[in-house]
């Protein structure tokens, strides 16, 4: 029965298939629409529509209850004159710059791990642990280490005669202290991306240059770095994008009843959260988010422009 029907289908098949192929490969286009439908509905309802909403709200005055009113560019002009916003912008920029300092550290460590003949997996796992740990938990541990009265860091510094500080309770240091945690947290991910890049460098290159008498350090700068540059570029772009969106660390490490350092250490996304969801000034919050989008787009576009100068593609 089945073989008969397959035979029949086969007999009827070729012309039908040829006809279908003329219009497109395989089954009717409706299958395509049906299969992307769940994703598309979700995307439209939860991403496209919210995006448009945020965009329009950024031009509105939105009271906590009731409909908003159009105010044109008021939110944006207010933002430009708002010292709090510029401070948050500056803090995010400083945090991003600190995280970029973590990229060379990751490159060196990735290159060292790559040299090992055994035990690579152990180091990757250890370096990766902070990535899979709750950011909230990580923040608590670091807050304890940074504690000004009995923290581990101040004790360690006292051993070498450096005076201790209230690292997260003093606005002078808070954003730097958080930046160090950010480097610590992202190192594992950067190592994995760079490790994948290192894997793709042909070992013959090292063998050939050894024969020519090049040492390890020379090989690192002449072979590893240039050939790794596309991965380094990827890591840099991703670092900037995620650093500009930092929220958790500020929320958990600085927010406490009496920490005045928070006021001067907010990041862009923290300010957005506070305006949109604590003070329920969604219009103003939306304007902050749109500006953040602009900043990220400019930063990313800038990096793509600059990559021509230093990224090596073969």
């Amino acid at each position: 029965m089945t073989s008969e029907s397959t035979a029949a289908a086969r007999a009827a098949g070729p012309p039908a298939r040829r006809r279908r192929r003329a219009g497109g490969l395989g089954p009717s286009p409706w299958w395509g629409y049906a299969m992307i439908a769940p994703a598309f509905i979700g995307l439209a309802a939860l991403y496209l529509w919210p995006f448009l909403k945020t965009f329009t709200k950024s031009f509105m005055d939105t009271p906590a209850f009731g409909p908003g009113t159009w105010t044109g560019l008021d939110n944006y002009t207010e933002l430009l004159g708002d010292g709090e916003f510029w401070q948050a912008f500056g803090n995010s920029a400083v945090y991003t710059a600190i995280l970029l300092l973590g990229v060379p550290i990751a490159i060196v460590l990735a290159a060292l791990v790559q040299q090992l003949s055994r035990g690579r997996a152990v180091y990757r796992v250890l370096y990766f642990l902070p990535v899979v740990t709750l950011p909230v938990a990580v923040s608590m541990v670091w807050r304890f280490i940074y504690n000004g009265d009995f923290g581990l860091l101040n004790w360690a510094l006292s051993l070498v005669g450096i005076p201790g500080q209230y690292w997260v309770a003093d606005a002078t240091y808070a954003i730097y202290a958080i930046g160090v945690v950010g480097i610590w947290m992202s190192l594992g991910i950067n190592l994995i991306i760079l490790g994948a890049g290192l894997q793709s460098i042909p070992p013959e290159l090292y063998e050939a240059s050894s024969l020519d008498g090049a040492g390890r350090v020379r090989q690192f700068f002449r072979i590893t770095l240039p050939l790794l540059s596309p991965s380094v570029f990827l890591v840099t772009v991703l670092t900037v994008i995620s650093a500009l969106q930092m929220f958790d660390l500020v929320f958990v490490m600085l927010r406490s009843v009496d920490n005045t350092a928070l006021d001067d250490s907010k990041t862009i996304v923290y300010l957005f959260y506070e305006k949109a969801f604590v003070q329920f000034d969604q219009g103003y919050g939306a304007a902050i988010a749109i500006v953040l989008l602009g900043v990220i787009m400019i930063a990313t576009a800038l990096q793509f422009r600059l990559q021509r100068r230093w990224v090596f593609y073969d």
Binding site: L46, W49, L52, K53, I241, Q245, A276, L293
Partner: peptide, 16 residues
């Protein structure tokens, strides 16, 4: 949509 920071969606997602 991949390039838009997730915070931009929060208000609309919350309202939905």
């Amino acid at each position: 949509m991949l390039m838009v920071p997730s915070q931009l969606f929060l208000i609309g997602q919350f309202e939905l």
